[in-house]
Design a protein around this nucleic acid. Structure first.
Lengths: 115, 115
DNA sequence: AGTGTATTTTAGAATTGGCTTAATTAAGAT
DNA sequence: ATCTTAATTAAGCCAATTCTAAAATACACT
């Protein structure tokens, strides 16, 4: 599951966000960051391996664009977890049921912030 | 964006997948892994901080369940990138247009696998 | 109070991750 | 051919992660 590993880094997330607005060359990407070319290049390699971006040569520069395969992998994982809105409803309903059946004092004790 | 960092680890992803099927105590989660209790406990803390799971005490054990807040954050990020299926269409259409306008030999040269 | 069980926290070692500089590859331009 | 520009790869450094073992905390029971 390389997409999650790739997107764990904030710089790489920003690169993906940038490319979502349109293709850019490696140099153009670098300009928008405070880090060196090689750092960006290394990030791009990780994103390429995760199929989140793809590159093709145009003369001496490499044009990067979004590759949706990695994003699809992400969406599929989320789908496997299940519909989020449904789980939110379930949680609320569970809580409502507890509030109605358990004594308020006990309920607050069981749900007081953990740690 | 702590949800991405949290899900970068495969063990933590598996924990979230497990909890998507139903709540479990910390001990039950540990049993399903090869690592020590404390390792799992540390993972759970990271997942808690990312609001991907929540815990409440039940007697001497802590019951963990999915917390959708973290997942919502993830979905929102994906939405900001834009509809994936639409981008897939765009990419295909771009390619089709190039295939029709550029000479085949040049097209293959520009799109041959990089590196 | 003291004991057992469940879990977390702390401390330390081994691994991984991200950055920089320097060297390398590739494609024009002169 | 040589030089410049664009980008990647290699090597080394420091910071962050992840694990284990040990100590600490929390609850239940007698």
């Amino acid at each position: 599951m390389p997409a999650f590993e790739a997107l764990a880094d904030p710089t790489r997330r920003r690169i993906v966000e940038m490319l979502a607005r349109g293709a850019l060359s490696a140099g153009e990407i670098t300009q928008r960051f405070a880090v060196s070319r090689s750092a960006v290049s290394q990030h791009l390699k990780i994103l390429r391996d995760a199929r989140l971006v793809s590159a093709h040569a145009m003369g001496q520069r490499r044009i990067y664009e979004l590759d949706t395969s990695g994003l699809v992998e992400l969406e599929e994982w989320l789908d496997r977890i299940g519909p989020v809105w449904q789980k939110r409803l379930e949680a609320l309903e569970r809580e409502r049921h507890e509030m109605l059946t358990v004594q308020p004092s006990r309920w607050r004790a069981a749900h007081s912030e953990d740690r």
